[in-house]
Design a protein around this nucleic acid. Sequence first.
DNA 1: ATAATAGCTATACGTGAGGG
DNA 2: CCCTCACGTATAGCTATTAT
Length: 397
Amino acid sequence: MQKEKQLVPKLRFSEFEGEWEKIKLEKICKFFSGGTPTSSNKNFYTGSIPFIGSGNIFDSKVDKYINEDALKSSSAKLVEEGDILYALYGANSGDVSISKIAGAINQAILCIRTEENKNFLYQRLSYKKTSIVNTYLQGGQGNLSAKIVKKISVNFPPLPEQQKIADFLSAVDNRIQNLEKKKELLEQYKKGITQKIFKQEIRFKDDDGKAFPEWEEKKLGYYFVERKEKGLENYPLYSLTIEDGVIPKSKRYEREFLVGDTKDAYKVMYKNDFAFNPMNLRFGALKRFKGDIMINVSKYYNIFYCNEKGSANFFDYYLTSYNMIQYYNKMATGTLEEKKRVHYHEFIKFKKLIPSLKEQIKIANFLSAIDKNIELVNTKIEQTKGYKKGLLQQMFV
DNA sequence: ATAATAGCTATACGTGAGGG
DNA sequence: CCCTCACGTATAGCTATTAT
């Protein structure tokens, strides 16, 4: 008779031995989900009880609050800080957290309580997320259910080992959080110093220690050339979705340029070209395309590149700086507040104080050094996450 | 009464029509 | 050609309705 595979992890703290036990969650956990007080009664939403939705399970703050009456007259249920929260519906399906706050939950959240070590269970379910989602959610709207979660089996060691593993993994999580904090601080530093540079509160010296020439007032059009080439076959079509200077937010609009596509509807964008959508520039939606290929984008974007009089790297920082976004916002035209735009022909007429080419290069190099630092921390974060993933694969059965 | 699902609503941005 | 407005489409996440 073939012996069943032993439930022993590959990697283990030396003081522990013996097999783990496979247990269905329904046997050792208590489950409940919440509800939503009817939205027709506005009064329900005036209290002081945090109302936690599936998008809030990781947060320590929520933006909706309900009162005691709402709690009584709906299925909303109270959870405590430290409870395991499991997101059932929508885009967050399968997310697990240890609640940072006490509050009421809606029916998109399943609260799980257990006498086992809850940090261990939390770590275990987080790790299982991908396989759970892949197994139970196909197409359309992703909905898990309490029924599904109850049937999930998890292998448990005795409590002391659970505790040790959970503590160890929490320490790794802490390290990741610290690195993320460091990254955030670096980004803040970059933002602050960028503002100071562009306001000339900080000035660089040239390589001989001499001051650079005074900044000169120039029209932006002095440095840029618009690219108006119509779409080309054989290059992919991107919907840029430049949002707060991020491109592309997701690649969901990337596809082949098809036979039926009209070239007139698109413009060509080369590597390192800048692009903005007149409608969204005032929010900072301007970006340089750094991919290695030429692409087709909607003709409603304005595409331009930097001529030899300026440093493209410098303008990459300059045009997306806080000061400039403020300026675009001020200069935007249009009758309705939410429809205000900055058109290219206005953009190139903007007069700004611009440093000499040499100083531009100096500034660009300084800022890209900070970017490299941020990238370095980011790499560490990814590495640590990879390290944790590797550990999880070996520490769990 | 509770659980689970289908469908709704708010939001956000891209795109097309039409007027100046 | 420039500009404005309205609409199309996708998404996130909530909630009303249905099923148990």
